[in-house]
Structure formats: C-alpha cells, structure tokens
Computed example of a mutant assay.
Amino acid sequence: MNIEIAAGTFSAMGSEARLEVLRLLIRAGEAGLTVGEIQERSGIAPSTLAHHLKFLAAGNVVTQEKQGRSTITRANFDHLQRIANYILCECCADEPQRAANDG
C-alpha cells in the first residue's frame, strides 16, 4: 500500500460519525446493513448519512451493492486489514534489541 492510498483511507475515517458508521458495519459482518438500518442504529439524519457513506466508499473503507430497491453497505474487511498492516508493519523497528543473555 502506498502512502497516498493510506492517507485517503485515514481521511475517509476522519470523523466521529464516520467511525461510528464503520463500527456498525464491522459489527454487522459480511451481511452488511441497508442504509435505513445504518440510519436507525446511528441516529444520523439521512442526508448527512449519505454524505458520510460517500466519504467511506471513496476511501475504499466500505462497499455498496444495490439489491432491488435497497443498497447494502458492507465494511471492506480486506482493505481494513491492509490498512491495519500498513500502520503496524514497522512496529518497534527502531527499538533496541536486547541481547539473548541480558537479564
């Protein structure tokens, strides 16, 4: 993952409301939620929710699929795993290594 994609992803998640929506979708699992279900569970006004979902989709954090008259929104678990790996991949790389016989 390059830094531009990572920055776009973090930007997409950059509000309390969007993080709340994302957490709802993560809790829902692969089945996802309809926009109505997200609105009901979050209490976010429909027009505001549409705005937040647009940001999340643009950041590849969620996917949306039209099913009849409903739109199912799902967390993009593959991308979320990649972004977690990206941010943690160099964890502790600069930490001094202890010698095997240090006590």
Rank of each mutant, 00 (worst) to 15 (best):
I44R: 06
V21Y: 03
R98T: 12
E40H: 14
L56E: 02
T34M: 03
I26A: 10
A12K: 02
A99I: 05
A28F: 01
L80S: 05
K54V: 10
K66E: 11
T34E: 03
E20D: 13
S11K: 14
A7P: 09
A12M: 00
L24N: 08
A17G: 04
L33R: 12
Q67V: 15
R41Y: 12
S15N: 04
R98M: 09
A28I: 03
A45Q: 14
L49T: 07
V35E: 08
N101L: 08
V61G: 03
R23Q: 12
R27I: 05
L49N: 10
M1K: 13
Q81A: 14
E30G: 12
G29I: 04
N76C: 01
I87F: 12
N76G: 04
N2Q: 08
V35N: 07
A17L: 02
L56A: 03
A12I: 03
E37G: 07
T63D: 07
N76L: 01
S70A: 15
G68F: 00
G59T: 06
K54W: 01
M13L: 10
P96L: 03
G29M: 05
T63M: 05
A75W: 02
T34N: 08
E65K: 15
L25G: 03
A99L: 08
S47N: 13
Q39R: 12
E20A: 10
K66P: 08
L22T: 10
V62Q: 02
F77R: 15
C92L: 14
E30T: 15
F10S: 05
C89N: 15
A99M: 09
I26H: 05
G103F: 10
R41P: 09
E65Y: 04
Q81C: 07
F10A: 05
T71Y: 01
G36N: 13
E16C: 06
R18T: 07
I38S: 03
A12F: 04
H52A: 01
I72D: 05
H51N: 06
R41N: 11
M13Q: 07
E37A: 07
R69M: 06
L24F: 08
